[in-house]
Simulated scan of single mutants.
Amino acid sequence: MIRPLLPLMLAALLCTSALADQPRPVVSEILTRETVALRSYPGQIAAEVETTLAFQTSGRIATRPVRLGDRVVTGDVLATLDQITLDEDVSTARAALTSAQAQLDFAQQSLTRARELQARNVASQAALEAATAQAESAEGRLRAARANLTRALDAERFGALRAPASGVITAILAEPGAEVSAGTPVLMLATDQGREAVIDVPEEVISLLPPAARFVIEPRTLGAAPLGGSLRLIEPVADKSIRNRRLHITLSPEVEPPRLGTMVDARLDQPDTPILTLPVEALLEADGVVSVWRIGADRVAERVTILPGPRVGGRIAVREGLSEGDEILIRGIHSVSEGEILGEREQ
């Protein structure tokens, strides 16, 4: 019974050896030119110039006649400080100035008498020096009183916060009754100097943008027509949480812009350009050189140096080194050697 099994075992060994000698199948990709189009990104309409408004003096806010979203014109009163307190400060400063002037007059009269008495050897030199010091001190108090009056008058004049330009109130930062100091933010004003669309895009999109990128802005409003826009600013710092970069797109002035805060979708306004791309897992990097395994004639592995372009999602654009129709190995790239014969491509 043993002898009939020997031919079967020998045949199995020969079959296994033949399979081992066959090239292993590979996972690869045939390069084709594909259209890489930037998808649209959500955003909103904002003002190109938004300014924080504050009083130039300290006080208690008495009135704030504007509300969030109100439209104002240049010179409109947006908020006022307590005028009674400001008037009282001016009256107090005037009284202090009058008192300081009277003290100076008396000190100067005393100095004149001291000089006359000292000239007749009736008063001592020490008395003259004391009178001189009192007069100089009175002059200093008078200067301080004048400065306080000037400050009080300025505060009275700056007791009304006026709109420096026409625009829309976008934020209320202080309410009536609040005590504020000079420079404390009270309101935010979005001026009419221009409107823009603000969108956030991934880092890899930045490298695909031309210097004077044009965009199509589509408001999410029923019946609203698309708008044109041009890239004004790419914020230099990415968002820490999602690593996106913010783009500011100036809207074309020919069309009336949507209202502030309108939600929009923005996409790059340029013809879609077909380019060669590769999966990032196909790349080999060593000493700053990027290469891939190309499967050449007779299924021979060839290591080819390429010039990569920008990253688009999980793929890399290829600028130089490869052509359309090349077959590139994308799995097992670290277990291949130059000149190795590779098997058929797995579908």
Rank of each mutant, 00 (worst) to 15 (best):
Arg162Cys: 08
Glu50Asp: 05
Lys240Cys: 11
Ser166Gly: 08
Ala286Cys: 06
Ala102Arg: 12
Arg267Phe: 13
Gly229Gln: 01
Ile341Trp: 07
Glu203Val: 07
Glu324Ala: 13
Ala127Gly: 14
Ala138Leu: 04
Ala212Glu: 14
Glu136His: 14
Leu260Gln: 05
Thr262Tyr: 01
Glu175Trp: 14
Leu208Thr: 06
Leu307Lys: 15
Glu204Arg: 13
Gln22Glu: 15
Gly296Pro: 01
Ser124His: 09
Ile242Cys: 12
Ile217Tyr: 05
Gln270Met: 15
Val300Glu: 11
Val186Trp: 03
Arg64Leu: 12
Gly75Thr: 00
Val280His: 08
Glu175Phe: 14
Glu179Cys: 07
Ala301His: 00
Ala212His: 12
Arg259Glu: 13
Pro25Met: 03
Ala11Leu: 13
Leu187Lys: 01
Val300Ser: 08
Leu149Phe: 02
Ala301Lys: 00
Ser241His: 13
Pro211Leu: 06
Leu13Ile: 07
Ala114Asp: 06
Arg243Pro: 11
Ile234Asp: 09
Arg245Ser: 02
His334Lys: 13
Ala46Pro: 04
Asp298Met: 10
Pro226Arg: 04
Ala224Cys: 04
Glu338Trp: 05
Val289Thr: 09
Leu149Ala: 02
Ala282Glu: 01
Ile295Tyr: 00
Ile199Asn: 00
Ala224Met: 05
Gly313Lys: 03
Ala163Pro: 02
Gln118Pro: 06
Ser252Pro: 06
Ala178Ile: 11
Arg71Ile: 05
Leu128Asn: 05
Leu189Gln: 00
Thr16Arg: 05
Glu129Tyr: 10
Asp326Trp: 04
Pro219Gln: 02
Glu254Lys: 12
Ser181Cys: 10
Leu173Asp: 02
Ala126Lys: 10
Arg232Val: 08
Ser17Ala: 11
Leu14Val: 10
Arg267Thr: 10
Ile234Val: 15
Gln270Lys: 15
Ala18Asn: 09
Glu302Phe: 05
Thr52Tyr: 11
Met9Gly: 15
Val237Trp: 04
Met263Ile: 15
Pro65Ile: 03
Val318Arg: 02
Asp287Asn: 12
Ile341Glu: 11
Leu128Tyr: 05
Ile84Leu: 11
Leu278Thr: 00
Cys15Gln: 08
Ile2Asp: 11
Pro185Ala: 02
Gln44Trp: 14
Ala100Arg: 04
Thr92Ala: 14
Asn244Val: 12
Gly314Trp: 13
Arg60Phe: 14
Val27Arg: 14
Gly296Arg: 03
Ala46Asp: 11
Thr305Leu: 10
Asp269Glu: 15
Arg220Met: 13
Pro253Arg: 02
Asp200His: 08
Leu104Arg: 15
Ala135Trp: 01
Arg259Ser: 14
